[in-house]
Amino acid sequence: MSNARTDRPDRCPTAVVTGGNRGIGYAVAARLLDEGCDVVLVSRDRERGEAARSRLAAVGSPRLVVGDLSGVRTIRATAEALREACPHIDVLIHNAGLWPSRRVLGEDGLEQAFVTNHLAPFLLNLELEELLAASSARVVQVSAGLYVKGRADPERTPTGLDFHPMRTYADTKLCNLLLVPLFAERWQDAGVTINALHPGVIRTGLGDRRGPLGWLLKAVKLTWKSPETGARPVVRLALSGETAGLTGRYFHLEDEHALEPVAADRTLARRLWDQAAGLTGVPQTPPPVRHDVP
């Protein structure tokens, strides 16, 4: 790509992509391989992960880490597997996401989209923090423009008491997005950057349903853009010299946008951070809320 990263180290950059076995994650992995990165796919299902790795062999030699991001215990196990597989991490792309059709509680008693979309990126960031800091890494959070429709209710959203087959996806994406500025502040002296983006309305399996509604959705998706199109702005944030040094930002495709007020509530963000720390059992706390930061 024409705007590829200009500050690459002599070694091959290592890029971790969660949910890298299909959809946008797969397309991102393909582009990163084409850019010469050492790509590590994180896939919940070993068979699907191996199939993706085999297909990607046409453009490179990706590695596979099998990891389940739907429970605190298994997120920690995934982080441990990544630490064993990766002596360094230069890029961490949080792409894995869940849009459920019904309320399902995992082994922690938490709603699974809340865990996968919100707690998993939070906990992976902290579990991998030393590796990220050692490489002055870039963290990219694949978000969703639907966050503007979300409501983050710390009392109800974690256990799905406010579950809705359409809105829960927006709620949990909003929870995750609220923490991006806090991570940016936490890492400001470590050289680690974090940015979020909406990659567009992309034709993937996310949110697929059964029955007549599912058939209708599949028909509508035929008009949506391809995963390869959605991958472009993600890889730009991960590698481009144009975005080097930017942190705590939100992008719609390649254009930076200010967060809507629903995602700019710093008091709520601190509350969600503290709750996530309690639910995952981590002692870390974010920097103090700085009211002079826009």
Rank of each mutant, 00 (worst) to 15 (best):
L123I: 07
L124M: 14
L124N: 14
L131R: 15
L131H: 15
L131M: 13
S136V: 02
V140D: 03
G145D: 08
G145F: 04
L146M: 13
V148E: 06
K149E: 13
K149C: 14
G150R: 01
R156S: 07
P158W: 01
G160D: 02
L161R: 12
F163R: 09
H164W: 08
H164E: 04
T168R: 15
Y169R: 11
Y169S: 11
A170H: 15
A170T: 08
T172F: 02
T172S: 14
L174S: 12
C175F: 15
V180N: 05
P181Q: 00
L182P: 00
L182Y: 03
W187D: 01
Q188V: 08
A190T: 02
A190D: 08
V192Y: 05
N195C: 06
N195R: 06
H198P: 01
G200W: 08
V201Q: 10
G205Y: 10
G205Q: 15
L206C: 12
D208M: 09
D208T: 07
D208A: 11
L213F: 15
W215R: 12
W215Q: 11
L216Q: 06
L217T: 14
T223F: 11
W224H: 02
A231S: 10
R232C: 02
P233N: 03
V234K: 00
G241M: 13
T247H: 07
R249C: 12
Y250Q: 04
L259Y: 03
L259T: 03
L259N: 04
E260V: 13
P261S: 15
V262W: 00
A264V: 09
D265Y: 01
R266G: 02
R266I: 03
T267N: 08
L268K: 08
